[in-house]
Computed example of a mutant assay.
Amino acid sequence: SSCQGSVPQALVAFFSSTDFEDAIRNAISIGGDSDTIAAIAGSLAEAHYGIPEDLREAAMQRLDAPLQEIVTAFEAAFPA
Rank of each mutant, 00 (worst) to 15 (best):
S1F: 11
P8A: 10
P8K: 13
A13R: 11
A13S: 14
F15Y: 09
S16H: 08
T18I: 09
E21Q: 14
E21S: 14
D22Y: 01
D22T: 00
A23M: 12
N26W: 01
A27P: 02
I28A: 09
I30R: 15
S34L: 10
S34P: 10
D35H: 09
T36M: 03
T36P: 03
I37M: 07
A38I: 04
A38F: 02
A39T: 10
A39F: 04
I40P: 02
A41R: 06
G42H: 06
E46Y: 11
E46G: 12
A47S: 13
A47C: 08
H48M: 05
Y49F: 15
G50T: 03
I51K: 07
I51T: 13
P52T: 00
D54T: 14
R56G: 04
R56Y: 05
A58M: 06
A59W: 00
Q61G: 04
L63D: 01
L63K: 07
L63S: 03
D64T: 15
A65K: 10
P66M: 07
Q68M: 06
E69K: 15
T72A: 07
T72Q: 10
A73P: 12
A73H: 14
E75S: 15
A76S: 12
A77Y: 07
P79Q: 08
P79R: 12
P79F: 03
A80R: 14
